Measured scan of single mutants.
Amino acid sequence: VTTYKLVINGKTLKGETTTKAVDAETSEKAFKQYANDNGVDGVWTYDDATKTFTVTEMV
């Protein structure tokens, strides 16, 4: 189990959250659901070296 981080650069929501998951794909699903639940829709990137997802909304 690995800890993954999500950085949110939204128009109205900014911040970070973490989750523990067995792999990046599992954490990505959880993070995308979290973003969707909070009305964040944007461009996703992933940095495997830091286990960090970033979602950026276009303004």
Rank of each mutant, 00 (worst) to 15 (best):
D37P: 01
E16Y: 13
T52R: 02
I8W: 09
A24G: 05
A35I: 08
G39K: 07
K5M: 07
D47Y: 03
T17V: 15
F31D: 01
K20T: 14
D37W: 06
T18V: 09
T19C: 15
K14W: 10
A35K: 02
Q33S: 09
A24H: 11
K20F: 13
D48I: 07
T26G: 06
T50A: 06
N38P: 00
D41Y: 14
T3K: 07
T45C: 08
T18P: 02
T17W: 15
D47N: 09
T12V: 11
V22A: 11
M58E: 13
E25A: 14
L13E: 07
L6Q: 02
N36V: 14
T3W: 10
K32L: 07
Q33G: 05
A24P: 10
G15V: 14
E28V: 06
A35D: 00
E57L: 07
N38A: 12
G15E: 12
E16M: 10
T50V: 05
D48N: 09
T3I: 13
V59S: 13
K14Y: 10
V22F: 12
A24V: 13
G42Q: 01
N36E: 14
Q33H: 06
D41T: 13
T52C: 04
A35M: 09
K11I: 15
G15D: 09
A49H: 10
T52F: 01
Y34S: 02
N36F: 14
L13F: 15
F31E: 01
L13A: 08
D41Q: 13
A49T: 12
L6A: 02
Y46E: 01
T52W: 00
D48L: 06
D47T: 04
Y34N: 01
A49C: 10
K5V: 10
N36I: 15
A35W: 03
T45M: 08
I8P: 00
K29T: 07
K11D: 07
F53Q: 00
A21Y: 05
G39H: 09
G10N: 05
T18L: 09
T52H: 01
I8M: 07
I8L: 08
V40R: 01
V1N: 09
V59M: 13
D37F: 07
D23A: 03
V55D: 00
T45W: 06
K20W: 12
N38Q: 14
A24R: 15
E28A: 11
T17N: 05
V7A: 03
K11F: 13
T52L: 03
A49V: 11
V1H: 10
T17F: 15
Y4P: 02
K29N: 07
L13W: 15
F31H: 01
T54I: 09
V43I: 13
N36P: 01
V1C: 14
Q33P: 00
V22P: 13
T17D: 03
M58T: 13
D23W: 03
V40P: 00
V7C: 06
T19W: 12
A30P: 01
G39I: 03
K5E: 03
I8E: 02
T17Y: 15
K5C: 08
T54M: 08
T50S: 10
T54W: 08
E25C: 13
S27C: 13
E57A: 07
A24T: 09
Y4A: 02
T12F: 14
K14Q: 11
Q33E: 10
N38G: 04
A49G: 08
V55M: 04
N38C: 13
L6T: 02
N38W: 13
N36G: 08
E57V: 09
M58N: 11
V55W: 01
S27Q: 04
L6M: 04
T54F: 10
D37E: 14
T26Y: 05
N9R: 10
T52M: 04
T19G: 05
L6Y: 02
A30F: 15
D48H: 10
E28I: 10
E25M: 12
V59H: 13
T26C: 07
T54R: 04
V55F: 03
G39A: 06
K32Y: 05
D37C: 10
V55A: 02
G15P: 04
Q33Y: 05
T45Y: 08
T18G: 04
G10Y: 06
T18C: 14
G15R: 12
L6N: 01
T3D: 07
T56Y: 08
V59G: 13
K32V: 07
G42W: 06
Q33T: 08
V7R: 05
A49K: 11
G10F: 11
F53W: 12
A21G: 07
A49P: 07
D47R: 02
L13R: 05
D37K: 10
T17G: 04
T26H: 09
M58P: 11
E16L: 09
G10I: 13
K32A: 04
A21R: 03
V40K: 02
Y34C: 05
T50G: 04
A30H: 14
K20N: 13
D23C: 05
Y34Q: 02
F31Q: 00
M58L: 13
E57Q: 09
V1S: 09
K51C: 06
N9F: 13
K51N: 08
G39T: 03
G10E: 02
F31L: 05
F53V: 00
